[in-house]
Structure formats: structure tokens, C-alpha cells
Design a protein around this nucleic acid. Structure first.
Lengths: 136, 136
DNA sequence: TTCTAGTTTATAATAATTCTAAACTACAAA
DNA sequence: TTTGTAGTTTAGAATTATTATAAACTAGAA
């Protein structure tokens, strides 16, 4: 609760009017011990599970978009629906051009890793991909 | 055209009956000079742009799925719809567990790159992410 | 040639996201 | 303090990507 002012300030300094809904969502997201992976669906459930304060799904979408643009949260690379495929099945890496949304291959030997973490126990590394995001 | 037998063989050896539609799609995908990035939508347009041979959209979906399972094409990491977000905005990497579909953070300093390609001219590197895919 | 499991197809259903436009609200200025 | 208004929220409709359905078709073994 004592962090509410900090959250309001965070919103304001990133050009977001600190509304009831945004504050609620920001508290839920940023007043956590551990980092949090979520989808709009899960966040919406989380936010609305306490009967009292209801936030509409549209607002959850809007807020997540606004927070992402403001750099408070980050979209993670994944491969769900709207899928892209590649005829190149050799292990390789990608440039992802944020302006044009285009993917370009990077030849495998143009990237070298000198340190890689051990996989969690019971798991093994299937492959490793590097995505380099580009902008102008 | 002389590669048609090779394609039929490729299909057959991966347990896929070489139907007219699959052969057509396989030729389009695998008889190219350069690798090809595509979505089902773009592939469907490509396949059906020559008035003659029509393949239904459902079949394009089915075939792309079958080819992916067979390892002839590969799904690429990207971040379209069904998006995941992360409150951790520090530069970091991920394990992606293919069994559970869960993402786990990898601390930035647990990965070291000793070689990184230059960005294309006019572009600069915004960030660089490593995704390590895990399986049992 | 016949039979059948595998495949294709049009269409319906579902799921994620975006759009719309009316109602509401934060907050600057009077 | 009140008022005006730009920014925000909302429910629901629309859109987009994908998957499911079930009837018709076909590759290929017998």
C-alpha cells in the first residue's frame, strides 16, 4: 500500500493517467516478489477474482498494451497461433526487424556462445536460438 | 520437375501419403533457392494463385502441421497474438519447456556470447535474446 | 478391381484480439 | 468548487487465426 504513490508516479511519468483500473493492475503486476509470466486471459482472471473491483477484459487488453509500450512489461517471444514457418530446418538464428516485422536468417556460425546454463534436472537442451531484434 | 520422385520419397519416408496436394505444397516449399518464411495465409495464396490446381485452406493447415511434425519445416519463435508478457524488463533469456509449454527466466549473466553478427546497414541492435528449448 | 484407411474439403465452431461508440472520470482552468 | 474536455473504460460486436466436423474422395494394398 505504501507503494501506491510510487506506482502513480510511474504511471504519470510514462504519460499514463493513473486511473483506478491501471493502478489496480500495476499493483498486481509490480508488487510481486518474483517475476510473473502471464497472458491477458490469466491476468484478467487474477485481477477479477476478488469479487469487489471489476475491470473489463477490454481494459486489461488496453492496459497491457499501454504498459508494454511504456516499457513496464515486455512481450516474450513465443510461437502461438499466427505462426510463422521456415523451410530452413538447420539450426540457425534470426534477426527480427521491429519496423518491418520481417524475420531474416542468421547463419549458425555467425553467432558463438561461450557460456550456456545447465538445463533443469530431468530436462535436456533440444536446441538454442538467438533472436536479435533490430530497429532503425 | 525431375525432383518430384525425391519429394514423393521424402513424404513417404516420413509416413505421409504423397497426395496431389502434399506434393504440390512440398514442391512449392522445398524447390526454392532461398529459404522461405511464411504463414499459412501466405502459403495458401501462393499455392492457389495459379488458377488451375486448388488446394483448400484446411488442407494447407493440415499439411503445414504434418510437415512440421515430420521435421520438414520448423515453427519460428515470434510474438503474435496469444501473447505472453513478463514483468521482468531486464535483459534476460529463457528456457522454453516444450513438454509443459512453460517459460523460465535465465539470468542475463548465465549466457555469454563471443560472436554476434553486425546488423544490416541502417539498422541497429535493440536487444538480443536466447531461447533454449528443453525436452525430457 | 475392390476395399478401406487415410486424406481432402467446405463449412461451422472456437479462441484471441481489436474495434466501436456511448458512458464515465481525472484534472486543468475558470 | 464547478465545469469542460480529452483521455479512459466498458459491453458487446467484429475480425482474425486456427481447429473441429463429417461427408466425399483417393492412394495403394490385397
Amino acid at each position: 500500500m505504501k507503494q501506491k504513490k510510487a506506482i502513480i508516479n510511474k504511471l504519470r511519468t510514462s504519460g499514463l493517467r493513473p486511473t483506478k483500473q491501471r493502478i489496480l493492475i500495476a499493483q498486481n503486476l509490480f508488487e510481486r516478489e518474483k517475476t510473473f509470466h502471464f497472458t491477458v486471459e490469466t491476468l484478467n482472471k487474477e485481477i477479477n477474482k476478488n469479487g469487489s473491483e471489476k475491470v473489463s477484459l477490454a481494459t486489461v487488453y488496453n492496459t497491457v498494451e499501454a504498459f508494454t509500450k511504456a516499457g513496464h512489461i515486455k512481450e516474450i517471444l513465443t510461437s502461438k497461433s499466427k505462426s510463422y514457418f521456415d523451410t530452413n530446418i538447420k539450426s540457425h538464428h534470426h534477426f527480427y526487424d521491429e519496423d518491418s516485422k520481417e524475420l531474416t536468417d542468421i547463419n549458425y556460425n555467425q553467432v558463438k556462445l561461450s557460456k550456456v546454463p545447465n538445463p533443469p534436472k530431468g530436462k535436456k537442451i533440444k536446441n538454442l536460438e538467438v533472436v536479435i531484434r533490430l530497429q532503425k
